[in-house]
């Protein structure tokens, strides 16, 4: 694919005898929302770890916007515009929501070897942070300590932080995990808005959300890509049905399901 923003080829990672990523090939086109699904243990988290740079692959390459980023550090990939949100909420708990997001803004506002001026009074940091909070629906929660906020709000802040780094692509690792129905539908709404301007790679268990949002879906089983295509193609794919076995119904019905 010529216009792929993220291009993964031959990605392989072994942990002892277990092949967590087995020759994965994946293209995420500019502007699309690409979902990755697969049963537990399919190697989704290992894959995202290799995309963000926390895990080094044994073989294969990762290209972002034409540049080979396979050897780049985590922070270097972030600087290029590849942002991620964490599956397990990973915030600065003893900071306020606004401080959390402002820190993400700061990471992309030049170097931070500024020792003297009060960072909390910097418009350059606070304004974009406030905007990002607003986009995820937390405009009036900025001054609350993160440790005093709900799990659903944490997920929103995770997203706001990823947005605040002005990314070109978002890697979202199960943004719906642990959310109630209301919070889930709010997250789906937010993601639907975001996909208009950003390329998104979404890893998610919530099939309803995946089929509602994704332009394309890649199915990962035992570290291997067994299918990749449009939601309707995936829904009717025999191999995918087989892989999901008992969950077959979920896959089949998800598109049409109502809550």
């Amino acid at each position: 694919m010529a216009d792929a923003l993220l291009k993964v080829s031959g990605l392989t990672k072994r942990f002892g005898g277990v092949v967590a990523s087995d020759d994965i090939v994946l293209d995420v086109a500019r502007g699309e929302l690409h979902a990755i699904i697969g049963p537990n243990g399919a190697g989704k988290t290992t894959l995202i770890g290799q995309l963000t740079g926390e895990i080094r692959p044994d073989a294969g390459r990762v290209h972002f916007d034409g540049q080979d980023i396979t050897e780049l550090q985590v922070y270097e990939r972030s600087q290029l515009g590849l942002a991620r949100s964490f599956q397990i909420t990973s915030l600065f708990l003893d900071f306020t929501a606004l401080d959390n997001v402002a820190l993400a803004v700061q990471a992309h506002a030049g170097h931070s070897f500024h020792f003297w001026d009060d960072a909390r009074r910097s418009r350059e940091l606070r304004e974009p942070a406030r905007d990002a909070l607003k986009r995820v629906g937390l405009a009036d929660r900025g001054d609350v300590l993160v440790s005093n906020m709900s799990h659903g709000e944490h997920r929103q802040i995770e997203l706001a932080m990823a947005l605040a780094t002005k990314p070109r692509m978002l890697l979202l690792d199960e943004p719906m995990a642990g959310l109630g129905p209301d919070e889930s539908s709010r997250m789906v709404r937010t993601l639907r808005e975001l996909k208009r301007e950003l390329t998104i790679l979404l890893i998610e268990h919530d099939m309803e959300a995946v089929f509602a949002l994704a332009d394309r879906i890649t199915v990962l089983v035992c570290g291997r890509v067994i299918a990749s295509g449009s939601p309707s193609a995936i829904r009717t794919n025999a191999e995918v049905r087989q892989a999901y076995l008992g969950e077959q119904e979920v896959v089949t019905d998800a598109g049409a399901a109502h809550v």
């Binding site: 915030l91 600065f92 993400a104 932080m161 780094t165």
Partner: peptide, 10 residues
């Protein structure tokens, strides 16, 4: 507070 997250945001 969270070194890993700091690296992830750049």
């Amino acid at each position: 507070s969270n070194d890993r997250r700091m690296r992830a945001i750049g």
